[in-house]
Design a binder for these strands. Structure first.
Lengths: 210, 210
DNA sequence: CTCCGACCATGACATTTGTCAGGCAGCCGG
DNA sequence: CCGGCTGCCTGACAAATGTCATGGTCGGAG
């Protein structure tokens, strides 16, 4: 399969060192793959990529510094020839959508069989797109976020657990306005209360952006 | 290090197939270690262990079927000679305490360096205990759960997101009583409201039991 | 036995939260 | 220009949530 040609150069980004190292070990077993860089933070992806010039970058979504989606966009801008394969724990529908919009070539969840990962890397490197079909269906079903910008912002701030008055102060709004945005979000998500709405929105990946 | 003696037999349990496979690849690089079984659910640990007789079991905490703590206890009861090393994503203070109480010999979080994992396995196999020192300190600081049995039960049920009336019906209590338990929990956790209290309790691993 | 403390349970009360109708600004198609 | 639409903001009202004082039960210490 690999012949004698140059191996595919990989960059790994995952905040859990153990997983990162384990993935490196797994992928290094393949003759046609070589891991040239590992980082543990999203904001280290581009600087490291500039040094090591990988062909494919495997990025986790949940990372400190910069999330995997933002890192994808930054990397695509800095090194357009480098393909991105997003490898994540949670198959949140919105994650897939955002990742593809940011320029990722593939999206794989961490409970896919280990043997398929190397193939996914090869396909991405060959210019193909790789997505979990089940997840793709869910993404289409869930659709794009129904939340308006303000609603999203309020929900995101509300994750901290503060009261409506706290949110109002943080966002420079009236307390009533905050409650109204929350109410709208509750209605749109089909939730029963504030906490529930936050859960639903998070599960669908609607709280990602800035 | 390994010489010519029999290698240490390992069982791996993690719900994320990719991580499981990657860990297997990582550990298989060591001459004195051999992975004899892999499972993706907590309730498969004991049956599989009865077949393959591992020397050390690496268990994740978050697993479907049976959580890693319960699996630890079950495995210790079924095969007392098999040591358990818990490998988890979250360094929740309560997790460590519960794991050790359940009979685990070691506790490692997934952002420890990959190279240390094999050593941890060897130490556990040799009868030593392995714990992340930072986490051990946090555990002592956080102390044992201050929540009473009922409070814990109410909080756990409240995770679903239902209203106080729903909880009252589910637990066969008066609505006022439910609110009172919640209020007590809020006070003890230092939280500002119900949702916040749930977060704090979860972070500390106080919501594990049945 | 009696007291004491811990836990559980309950209803009354104040605060917070969720809902609603309505006002304001921008934007688009006619 | 105008009506219709969407999103943002606000205050008033009803419903939920959180707090408190109180009483009941059980088990251990004195």
């Amino acid at each position: 399969m690999s012949g004698g040609s140059t191996p595919i150069r990989l960059l790994l980004a995952d905040d859990q060192a153990l997983v990162r190292g384990a993935l490196a070990a797994l992928l290094s077993l393949e003759e046609d793959l070589t891991v040239v860089a590992e980082v543990g933070r999203g904001d280290e992806v581009v600087p490291e990529a500039r040094r090591s010039f990988p062909d494919v970058a495997l990025l986790d979504v949940e990372m400190p510094g910069l999330d995997g989606i933002a890192a994808t966009a930054a990397l695509r801008a800095a090194l357009p020839t480098c393909r991105v394969l997003v490898v994540t724990t949670f198959g949140r529908p919105g994650y897939l959508r955002r990742a593809m919009e940011a320029g990722a070539s593939g999206f794989v969840v961490k409970d896919t069989p280990a043997r398929q990962l190397a193939d996914a890397v090869r396909r991405v490197h060959a210019g193909l797109r790789v997505v979990d079909p089940t997840l793709a269906a869910e993404t289409l079903a869930a659709g794009v976020s129904p939340l308006t910008e303000r609603e999203t912002e309020v929900l995101r701030t509300a994750r901290g657990g503060g009261s409506a008055a706290d949110l109002a102060r943080a966002l420079h709004l009236s307390e009533g306005t905050v409650r109204n945005h929350l109410s709208a979000a509750i209605g749109k998500t089909g939730a029963r209360n504030r906490a529930d709405a936050i859960r639903v929105a998070e599960q669908n990946g609607w709280l990602l952006g800035d």
